[in-house]
């Protein structure tokens, strides 16, 4: 399907995007890590007495949730807009346009890995001991990337045809922040519709897996991981198929 020249192009697009985000410099990377840290400070200040009172290691609990939410929000927004943001590449060059979406996802993956390492260091510094369960972390990060990738493909496929998808998606992202247990425990919402929404929320599931291995020191149940990754891969296939079906029309609309 893809030859060596295609993979070389994907590599170069990914590296270029990464360099443009200033992540390749130490201070450039620090600035992007400050965003979730700032959110962490505000949420901790306001919620530690009530929502965080019964959550052990609440700062790390918050940080893990913010890390994955921020990565999801930033990368899907980037992936959605990439065809328009690189309009010349979309309309004037011949190569598989999915590489533009993939390069956005892969360049953010580098940030995700580094941010996760920093989070783990903070966790260890705050007294959370490392356990063999941490071997699940790479798999959980892959699960996060699969989630981000399929959402990005669907959005990237639709956005060229309807400019207000950008606005709609950002409203949904704000809602997602509250329907994902980032600053509260899932039990806070009780049973009922809210709990059902949490259970169906794939971002909540990834965050729960990461908290399980880091905070609880327990491995993720294989069935739990499988139940997450298999539908994720199916949705990735569907998103990709939609993208390829609409690809011949992108150049007319971006």
């Amino acid at each position: 399907m893809y030859d060596a020249a295609d993979l070389n192009l994907l590599r170069e697009l990914t590296v270029s995007q990464y360099k443009l985000k200033d992540q390749s410099s130490f201070f450039g990377f620090l600035w992007s890590f400050l965003n979730p840290l700032l959110m962490l400070g505000v949420l901790f200040l306001f919620f530690r007495m009530r929502l965080g009172a019964e959550i052990e290691h609440y700062p790390v609990y918050l940080l893990l949730g913010l890390l994955l939410y921020t990565h999801f929000a930033n990368t899907t927004s980037l992936g959605m807009r990439v065809l328009r943001a690189t309009r010349e590449l979309t309309t004037e060059t011949v190569f598989p346009k999915e590489f533009l979406v993939l390069s956005a996802v892969l360049s953010s993956a580098m940030d995700l890995v580094i941010s996760t390492v920093i989070c783990l260091a903070i966790a260890f510094a705050s007294g959370i001991g490392p356990t063999p369960a941490l071997l699940w972390v790479p798999a959980i990060l892959v699960a996060e990337l699969v989630l981000v990738a399929w959402v990005s493909f669907f959005l990237a496929a639709i956005f060229p045809f309807a400019w207000d998808v950008d606005h709609i998606f950002h409203v949904l992202l704000r809602a997602l922040f509250f329907v994902t247990p980032i600053f509260y425990h899932p039990s806070f919402v009780g049973e009922g519709v809210a709990q059902t929404i949490l259970r169906l929320n794939p971002l909540a599931q990834v965050i729960a897996m990461l908290r399980t291995v880091v905070l609880d020191g327990e491995s993720v149940a294989l069935s739990t991981f499988t139940l997450f990754i298999v539908p994720g891969l199916v949705l990735l296939g569907l998103g990709f198929a939609l993208f390829k079906r609409l690809e011949p029309r992108f150049a007319e609309y971006v």
């Binding site: 070389n8 590599r11 170069e12 270029s16 360099k19 010349e88």
Partner: peptide, 27 residues
């Protein structure tokens, strides 16, 4: 249009590799 895909904030060296890849010339 020559140079489509080149990135103004990257160096000439970096753009040679990027544009080369767009032209399907391996690194």
């Amino acid at each position: 249009g020559l140079g489509v895909g080149m990135v103004r904030d990257l160096t000439v060296r970096e753009n040679v590799y990027l544009y080369g890849a767009i032209c399907r010339v391996h690194r």
